[in-house]
């Protein structure tokens, strides 16, 4: 145990300031859907296949009361060890069980499988962190709703087929539904369930 654990990379360099900074970023991202923010430099040491933005989000948000879902390719590997070590979270038993879910944009997992919250407690929903190739350059979606003055456009790259439709369907379930954060490298933007989405925007 100790030999492998000793190889675990450190988490936040400054626990308080870094976690507050990442928390602030995701708060701003949720308040201004579609706006791209960066958490560069907050998690310099992390498992190689975990983007910095995803690493920062998990460190800042996950704890022992929030089961975390990882893509199958990360199961039992360095990412799982790192997440469990630093957050104390357990690995979710199913997609439905997850409070925070790391989802590969190309992964064949239905967005509807994640917890949408309950009528009485919509806040008990999952937050899905979507690992994309890039946050720009893909097919565009036009956003409107709370936090967007008129409309905004996002175009994450590398999403699997039909994922855009599922995102739109997720928004239709409001006040239920998952909240989404798209990440690539150190950057992120959010699509909370309150955002209206039109697939295939004008641009």
């Amino acid at each position: 145990m100790s030999a492998s654990s000793a190889a675990v990379a450190p988490g936040f360099a400054d626990l308080v300031l870094d976690s507050q900074a990442v928390f602030r970023s995701v708060l701003d991202a949720m308040a201004r859907p579609g706006t791209i923010l960066s958490v560069a430099g907050r998690v310099p040491d992390r498992p190689a296949d975990l983007p910095e933005a995803a690493a920062g989000l998990l460190l800042a948000l996950a704890d022992y009361e929030t089961p975390v879902r990882l893509p199958a390719r990360m199961a039992g590997g360095a990412v799982e060890r790192w997440v469990v070590f630093h957050t104390g979270a357990r690995i979710a038993e199913s997609d439905r069980d997850a409070t925070f879910a790391l989802l590969d944009a190309r992964e064949d997992a239905a967005l509807a499988a994640f917890h949408p919250g309950e009528d009485r407690y919509p806040d008990r929903s999952a937050t899905v962190i979507v690992l994309c190739d890039a946050l720009e350059g893909g097919p565009s979606m036009t956003l409107s709703g709370p936090g967007i003055e008129t409309s905004a456009t996002v175009a994450p790259a590398g999403l699997r087929a039909h994922f855009h439709d599922e995102i739109a369907a997720n928004a239709e379930r409001f006040p239920l539904g998952a909240d989404l954060v798209f990440v690539a490298g150190d950057r992120l933007f959010a699509l909370p369930r309150s955002t209206r989405i039109a697939v295939g925007g004008t641009r």
Binding site: V8, P10, G11, D14, L15, F85, H86
Partner: peptide, 8 residues
């Protein structure tokens, strides 16, 4: 020593 998890 290297601090993996700072005192908290």
């Amino acid at each position: 020593h290297c601090v993996l998890k700072a005192e908290e």
